[in-house]
Design a protein around this nucleic acid. Structure first.
Length: 760
DNA sequence: CAGCGGTTCATTTTT
DNA sequence: TGAACCGCTG
């Protein structure tokens, strides 16, 4: 350390990680230990102080947004050269690789990226062509197996060989063969292909490999614990000439093993690179000592870990609040109440708080509560913008223009909006295409030769053909051409007209969404150097939910624990710490044969806990509304792993749910992009701040007079079915119809007038 | 061909 | 609870 350096701003371990630019480095970075800082400083140091060109650096980040931020940071240092930094997610880098090298590799560079939805519809087509029904084989299981095979770098032929004599396995392998053939025919790649294909091509083509190896003097990988085998191979291949590879990760935060992330990538780093340097970042700059102690106490129960102990020089901080709630609705009240209380007491804005949960479904009671008290909120993830039906429909038209071989998009839009082309017609066209080995689009152009079509079908198909021709012949080079194309599609397909005629609030929302899509296309065209339809479609396909989230707001954030990776908030509330929910029932089941299932859940909790800077609250409910009925819950085993002296515990008195009101009126138009409730809609809060015991709700059937015992939540005795709990009540007096969940698990509907129920 | 109603089944998590 | 799938009818 002679002259002052950028790196002086780092602590010694961070500095070592950032400055060690020769040879392989593994940075084991505990939560909140300044991992992102190290990565950014490392790149800055390389470029600014060691004179490495951004062109020679590859940086793999977890979101495209993170890549953009890194690029921006470098841009401040070295100017426009920063654009040459090869940065992005594995998937976006893989897609770019395939496009750049398309000529070399003999593929069509205008390929389409298929998401889960597209894969499913492709699989449905394959099933239908083989007259298979969902009963014969589970399409989801087939798709799963295909994905797992790809992640294990097993191609269709290899899977077939593995299947041996098992007819079951052979059938799945056959579908894999067909699937992959269809993908090629459609000129499409799925998410797995985007990594696996580049790896295959790099292995196959020494010249291409050498070009990449030569170029990338420095390779950086973030969130290394979540990489899978192909991703590992991709980076290893590219880095293997200069061997300057820096992987940053935390085995304790590995939460994507369920989808093939391979923890061996981190655990075996030293054996893969004998000369690897391992740097541990264990000083935490984020959380209070108590929060950290909770995190450490929990994660210590895992056996499969490298082991490290986070410490902080910071304050002890507040006790962790653990609240036992009567049911999921009061849990929502408590969680929101905690946010309001802590924020007002500590002078935080609601934007500095987050509520985390295990499953997306859990957002519902929280949303209802937030709408009730009028607190603005944002949901990150969930139903994403580009997954909305109307958006996917319009995007499918655009895809079809960019990639005429894309049958999945073709089939999606051939009768959307309705233009009188029914299933029989579609099947006839499809069979014709299959016979000719042609795409649907090509078949459509040979309409006259398609047999068995009646005049009406023929005419409808002809006008669809003309529509597609018109859209395809648009000049796409002019400025604003993409926006114009999308606009044209919206008009000429009649999509906008249909929505206008419908006039329902839902249709209105869809129109708004489509308007927003046009806005995004325009924005893309304006901000992107060489904008193209293909470029836009790729961006759409590879956008991560985090990329899509709003930057900053005063609104409370809601998201799943998975989405919270890499983020931090002064106040964190984690809901639903119950057995069978967190950890999930499935992980518990799996744990009987395999301990690691629970361990991944525990890591997920660890990730959640370590998001918190100052305040942490955990909640669980005794009863939870799930699968349409109330289920009793037991506190999560994880709660018992937290030392009492770190916590402050509260428990709500018994309380039953009233029947659910129907969903809050959709009258308030939510911003379709962010789900933010407009602040102007905020009503003064009625409750949710204080922990009031709701008397009326606690008195079962209080308002109904004599038949108190027939309220929702009550237990009753049925002459045939035995003991059961009322989960739903419809109608009044003698017409009252009850839904009862009996102890043996059956759910029955009974009429009070006939059922002769007794209190249990 | 389209729309309706009835039934079934499921919830991890997501690039 | 609800989405999604299936089969029937007009």
């Amino acid at each position: 350390m002679s002259s002052p350096s950028l790196l002086d701003a780092l602590n010694p371990q961070q500095r070592e990680a950032a400055s060690q630019v020769e040879g392989p480095v593994l940075v084991l970075a505990g939560a909140g230990s300044g991992k992102t800082r190290v990565l950014t400083y490392r790149v800055a140091h390389l470029v600014e102080e060691l004179g490495v060109s951004p062109w020679n650096i590859m940086a793999v980040t977890f979101t495209n947004k993170a890549a953009g931020e890194m690029r921006q940071r470098i841009e401040q240092l070295v100017g426009p050269a920063a654009q040459q930094l090869w940065a992005g997610t594995f998937h976006s880098l893989g897609a770019r690789f395939l496009r750049y090298e398309s000529k070399e590799l003999g593929i069509d560079g205008n390929f389409t990226v298929y998401d889960e939805d597209d894969r499913r519809s492709l699989m449905r087509r394959l099933f239908s062509e083989r007259d298979l029904s969902n009963q014969d084989m589970d399409p989801k299981a087939v798709l799963n197996q295909i994905s797992r095979s790809k992640t294990a770098m097993i191609d269709p032929q290899a899977l077939m060989e593995q299947a041996g004599e098992s007819p079951q396995k052979r059938r799945i392998a056959e579908m894999y063969v067909a699937y992959q053939a269809a993908m090629r025919a459609n000129n499409a790649f799925d998410f797995d292909d985007l990594i696996v294909e580049p790896v295959r091509q790099l292995n196959r083509s020494p010249q291409v490999l050498e070009r990449y190896q030569e170029r990338f003097q420095q390779v950086l990988i973030d969130e290394y614990q979540d990489t899978n085998q192909p991703q590992y191979l991709f980076s290893k291949l590219i880095a293997s000439k200069h061997r300057n590879i820096c992987c940053v990760g935390d085995d304790d935060q590995s939460i994507y093993q369920f989808r093939g992330a391979d923890i061996r990538n981190i655990l075996d780093f030293e054996s893969d690179y004998a000369d690897a340097r391992i740097v541990r970042l264990e000083q935490n700059y984020r959380s209070t000592a108590r929060i950290l102690a909770v995190a450490n106490a929990v994660i210590e129960h895992n056996r499969d870990r490298k082991g490290k102990n986070l410490w902080t020089a910071g304050d002890e901080g507040a006790l962790i609040q653990i609240t036992e709630c009567a049911d999921d609705r009061s849990e929502a009240r408590r969680a929101v109440g905690t946010v309001k209380n802590v924020c007002s007491r500590e002078g935080l804005s609601a934007g500095e708080a987050v509520i985390l949960y295990r499953t997306n479904a859990q957002s519902r009671p929280l949303e209802e509560e937030l709408q009730r008290v009028g607190l603005p909120y944002v949901i990150v993830g969930g139903i994403r913008f580009y997954e909305r039906k109307e958006i996917k429909d319009l995007v499918a038209y655009l895809r079809l223009v960019a990639n005429p071989a894309d049958d999945v998009s073709f089939l999606r839009v051939i009768n959307v909006p309705k233009r009188g082309i029914g299933n029989t017609t579609i099947v006839r066209l499809r069979d014709f295409a299959n016979q000719r080995g042609a795409s649907m689009r090509e078949a459509l152009e040979m309409l006259d030769q398609v047999p068995e079509l009646n005049a009406r079908a023929r005419a409808n198909l002809a006008s669809f053909r003309d529509l597609i021709r018109e859209l395809s012949s648009c000049d796409r080079s002019a400025e604003g051409a993409l926006t114009a194309l999308a606009q044209l599609a919206l008009e000429r397909t009649g999509y906008r007209e249909i929505l206008e005629q419908e006039g329902t609030p839902e249709a209105e929302t869809r129109e708004l969404n489509l308007g927003q899509l046009l806005g995004r296309i325009a924005e893309y065209e304006e901000l992107t150097e060489d904008s193209s339809l293909e470029g836009f479609l790729e961006e759409v396909a590879l956008m991560t939910p985090a990329d899509d989230a709003p930057d900053r707001s005063d609104a409370l954030t809601l998201m799943t624990l998975h989405m919270a990776k890499g983020l931090e908030y002064p106040l964190v509330v984690i809901c639903g710490l119950e057995e069978n929910l967190f950890p999930t029932a499935r992980s518990i089941e799996e744990s009987h044969t395999n301990r690691s299932a629970i361990e991944e859940e525990r890591r997920l909790l660890y990730v959640g806990i370590t998001r918190a800077r100052r305040f942490l609250a955990l909640t669980h409910a005794r009863w939870r509304f799930m699968y349409g009925s109330l289920q009793e819950s037991v506190p999560s085993r994880f709660l018992s792993e937290i030392p009492d002296e770190l916590t402050h515990k509260e428990a709500e008195p018994e309380r039953f749910q009233r029947p659910r009101r129907q969903a809050p009126s959709p009258a308030v138009v939510k911003d379709p992009w962010t789900h933010i409730m407009p602040a102007t809609q905020t009503k003064p809060s009625v409750s949710g701040v204080h922990y009031e015991f709701d008397e009326a709700a606690a008195r079962p059937g209080g308002d109904e007079g004599h038949q108190d015992f027939l309220a929702v939540g009550s237990w009753v005795l049925h002459p045939n079915w035995g003991r059961g709990q009322i989960v739903r009540s419809e109608g009044a007096d003698a017409d009252t119809k009850l839904t009862i969940r009996f102890s043996r698990g059956q759910v029955k509907k009974v009429l009070v007038a006939y059922a002769s129920l007794e209190p249990a």
